[in-house]
Design a protein around this nucleic acid. Sequence first.
RNA 1: GCGGGCGUGGUGGAACUGGUAGACGCGCCAGACUCAAAAUCUGGUUCCGCAAGGAGUGUCGGUUCGAUUCCGACCGCCCGCACCA
Length: 845
Amino acid sequence: MARYNAKESEKRWQDVWSSRGTFVASNTSDKPKAYVLEMFPYPSGRIHMGHVRNYTMGDVLARFRRAQGFNVLHPMGWDAFGLPAENAARDSGVNPREWTYANIAAMRRELQMMGLAIDWSREFATCDPEYYSQQQKLFVEFFKAGLVYRAEADVNWDPIDQTVLANEQVIDGKGWRSGAPVERKKLSQWFFKITEFSDDLLSALDQLDRWPEKVRTMQKNWIGRSEGLRFAFDLSNGEKLDVFTTRPDTLFGASFVAISPDHPLASALAKSDLKVAAFIEECHRTGTSEAAIETAEKLGYDTGITATHPFDPSWKLPVMIANFVLMGYGTGAIFGCPAHDQRDLDFANKYKLPVLPVVIPEGEDPKTFHVGKAAYVGPGKLANSRFLDGLDVDAAKNAAITRIENDGRGTRTVNYRLRDWLVSRQRPWGCPIPMIRCAKCGYVPAKESDLPVKLPDDLKFESAGNPLVSHPTWKHVDCPQCGGKAERETDTCDTFVDSSWYFARFTDPKSEKPVNAKAAAYWLPVDQYIGGIEHAILHLLYARFFTRGLHKLGYTNVDEPFTGLFTQGMVCHETYKGHNGEWLTPDEVEKRDGQAYLKGTNVKVTVGSSEKMSKSKKNVIAPESIIDVYGADTIRWFMLSDTPPERDIEWTDEGASGCWRFVQRIWRLIDESGELSAPGTKPGNVEGASLELRRATHKAIAAVTNDLENLRFNRAVAQIYTLAGAITDGVDPAAKREALEALTILCGPMMPHLAESCWECLGHKTLLVDAPWPKADPALTRSDSVTIGVQVNGKLRGSLEIARGSDNKSVETAALTLDGVVRALEGKAPKRVIVVPERIVNIVA
RNA sequence: GCGGGCGUGGUGGAACUGGUAGACGCGCCAGACUCAAAAUCUGGUUCCGCAAGGAGUGUCGGUUCGAUUCCGACCGCCCGCACCA
């Protein structure tokens, strides 16, 4: 008997799979297809436990589908553009390209050590010119299709990363990477017209029934659809002012009109009026963080301009500049109805504006109904509203809109919160935007024959700003249209563009076209996508947009990239602090007698809460260190055990050694299995312990299959433990073989190397990865008899072993004679006996 | 504030459409093997109680023959969004 040598075995099987091309996917097959994808990593240089968890889950599914007879696509690539490479270049003088490819090589090696069933022949990095040149083609095609435009806009500027950011990349007013408060700047930038699909991106969410509800809700809120009315006020200065409202029913309760401090009208007034300029300045100082908004006072400035009420030419409303009106939503201007909107009410109370209720809740008298500090936003009947009087809210909305439309003042509108996606980045390590600016022709796309617009190799990072701008030759080109002197766009694409279509490229990564429509038609959509919840909006929304763009251009026939989405939890670990409050790494700490000490000393260490593994808290465990000691199967098993995959998992040494012990236990079970039948023999009719084992085997097959189908890895693991525990000596050799083979196959997706070794040990000449998934025999997954509980008044008083299909009367009779039942009844006659067949008996006394 | 989720032993967590709460793992305890240790194996492990029995899934209430599961209120924790007109 020999211990299982994970190191040797894992290397050996990885070599076998690789040399046979086991996981190379074919684009033509009679089998049903399964596209399993995990979010591809940024090549930081080392894999972390989060990657291990993510890729293990995807791998289990890919291997499971393969065994089930699917043609599986399970590729891997690298999200390889981005700032860390530039930072490395600036700090250590390395070339960002070389730095990135060295990291990729290191991480590829680590991923391969995990034994992932990946088709490495399809691997690419987004910084490969072969990839980004295709992206440039797409950019030009999107441009020609009207999905890309350049516009001047108020944009978010990250002062640390020295670039603009998309709205989605600003979290609590701060840059998503740098954490620096973003500044507003007016700049001319490139946009993707994601709003072209606002309505579709929203309504299609309902069909994504294999997405987490949470992600769908977040996207719904981000897109933010609201129905209402857009109309124009006539202003006393002769201009018109557009406003958007969802409450046109409350127009007769209006007491002011307010515009955003960033509204063009406010800017225009500021030019000639210092007080307006000072007020706008003051609004900008308040900040946009959530805390600032929470406590911010409503600020207003009366412009002296008045607006004419749309239903009454003699009614004039003051036009105010108000800090709570956002330029980024609707038209940046509103009418204020204090009685029925809390913000308007707070504002009106501060500036002594009238508060006139026009929606009266049921049971209240319009003459006496009063709105104090809380605006009334509920249902009711209209009052004080002339032609709307007596209508309920919805009818009044319609009536008001109809009147406005008939007067030609406005239209019924659906307004979205979603803005177009700003994709220009003032960074050099990204996909160059393939546009050329000519003084005569304006912006002209680079010719397809001139693609790729390659990045120069000699980028200099010493000085601030974008090195593509300061590069001596790179940007100087001739205009593709007139041939005159022109300049390249020096901005690059947001790296989220790179990840918005990579899944489509995987279907044929060598294609001359961005996407091979035939390959995409075969493989897309991705059947199961797995990754972190942090991409709930950003990446997943952009990918949904891009897929619609690809559809529009004829590259695919689907709109949704991912039919199944799973968001896995994070990997956590205890934190440790020394006596000076400094963070300590797990290797600096040892535990004795339930107490933590600084390793090799008696200095006590404070054990803190379990947190997401991070460099800053030093609670990181390097996956490779675990693979070195225990092997890949152990770390994979750990990631799948105990904790449901969507929740955060805590890494513990005890858990890891427990997994390792189980690896050894399985190996011993097989290696020391004693007498077995020859491979391929089926068990005959057996009984007693052998039959029990067969039942346990088939129950496990059924349960594990169902659990893997539903990504309930932790339950599948528990089922496998149960089966392992049920395997005993002294049974029929064929029944035992059946159990051991099932155990091996069921372990296969999760611990593929161990399973392959076991399969070999069981005498098979073929590979386990080529073995089909077993089918549970329904006759064996149910026992002939069941043990049911017997309750008296809902309290358990005994149990009864009955044959399946026993009639209720005999079950009742048997139940009434149980000792515990007789005692509990104390001689009283039962009032009622409820028998739920094969489940429970409850006696009501 | 709005939206979503969660609360079960020492611990991670099981429990199908309401039907014997605590599967399985970790930890712990005891025993076997061993000169000893490691490894392994066997048994035990919700709490109170010697036992019979009692209590028990955040709290309080409801529906039900029966509630971790359904309903209401409350408490606590987590996540997302946030002056969205």
